[in-house]
Lab assay of single mutants.
Amino acid sequence: ITFYEDRAFQGRSYETTTDCPNLQPYFSRCNSIRVESGCWMLYERPNYQGQQYLLRRGEYPDYQQWMGLSDSIRSC
């Protein structure tokens, strides 16, 4: 899974293949995501807390595409 700070896969990015309890050191906001394979559970707060979103393989050019309430993703 790759997270992008800006919409349409622009700006600083961070890629991971494992669970991350705290994504804050890698980016300040998340406006687009690419899921290369599988399913990922994302959380608005660190340590798997807050609103959660299940994303399947695909491209999400805007946080509203995954029904996000904000551009805050802090763990996965």
Score class of each variant (00 low, 15 high):
20 C>H: 14
57 R>V: 12
54 L>I: 05
31 N>A: 02
7 R>F: 07
44 E>F: 02
4 Y>N: 01
73 I>S: 02
44 E>S: 07
36 E>F: 05
70 S>L: 08
61 P>D: 09
19 D>I: 10
21 P>K: 12
35 V>A: 02
5 E>Q: 07
47 N>Q: 04
49 Q>L: 12
30 C>E: 00
71 D>I: 06
44 E>K: 09
25 P>S: 13
15 E>Q: 12
50 G>D: 02
7 R>C: 11
41 M>D: 05
55 L>F: 03
71 D>H: 06
25 P>T: 15
7 R>K: 05
3 F>T: 01
68 G>P: 10
42 L>S: 03
24 Q>E: 15
10 Q>W: 04
48 Y>T: 02
48 Y>W: 10
5 E>D: 10
69 L>G: 09
28 S>Q: 08
12 R>E: 14
23 L>G: 01
8 A>K: 15
72 S>V: 10
73 I>H: 01
26 Y>T: 04
50 G>W: 00
67 M>K: 08
67 M>L: 10
26 Y>L: 13
49 Q>V: 06
51 Q>A: 10
20 C>Y: 07
11 G>R: 04
44 E>D: 12
49 Q>K: 08
18 T>V: 09
53 Y>R: 10
9 F>C: 15
21 P>T: 11
12 R>D: 06
9 F>T: 02
2 T>W: 04
61 P>M: 11
12 R>A: 08
25 P>Q: 08
37 S>Q: 05
34 R>L: 07
26 Y>M: 14
32 S>D: 01
32 S>Q: 00
3 F>R: 00
42 L>Q: 00
39 C>Q: 06
61 P>H: 03
59 E>D: 12
26 Y>Q: 07
68 G>H: 13
3 F>Y: 00
58 G>I: 02
51 Q>S: 10
12 R>Q: 12
10 Q>G: 11
75 S>Q: 03
12 R>M: 08
4 Y>R: 00
10 Q>K: 15
74 R>L: 12
57 R>E: 14
30 C>V: 06
39 C>G: 14
54 L>H: 07
45 R>K: 14
56 R>M: 15
24 Q>M: 03
13 S>Y: 03
44 E>H: 05
58 G>Y: 11
23 L>N: 01
45 R>D: 06
19 D>Q: 09
54 L>F: 06
55 L>S: 01
53 Y>E: 05
17 T>F: 04
76 C>K: 00
42 L>Y: 01
50 G>L: 00
11 G>Q: 02
19 D>A: 07
30 C>M: 04
59 E>M: 09
53 Y>V: 09
63 Y>Q: 05
6 D>W: 03
26 Y>D: 04
24 Q>K: 08
13 S>V: 13
64 Q>Y: 04
2 T>F: 15
17 T>M: 05
8 A>F: 08
38 G>I: 04
50 G>Q: 01
61 P>S: 11
65 Q>H: 07
21 P>L: 09
8 A>Q: 11
52 Q>I: 06
32 S>G: 02
45 R>I: 04
4 Y>K: 00
39 C>I: 10
73 I>R: 01
2 T>Y: 14
57 R>C: 15
16 T>I: 06
44 E>T: 03
33 I>F: 08
67 M>H: 10
65 Q>Y: 12
8 A>N: 15
67 M>T: 10
37 S>T: 12
29 R>T: 15
44 E>P: 03
47 N>C: 04
19 D>M: 09
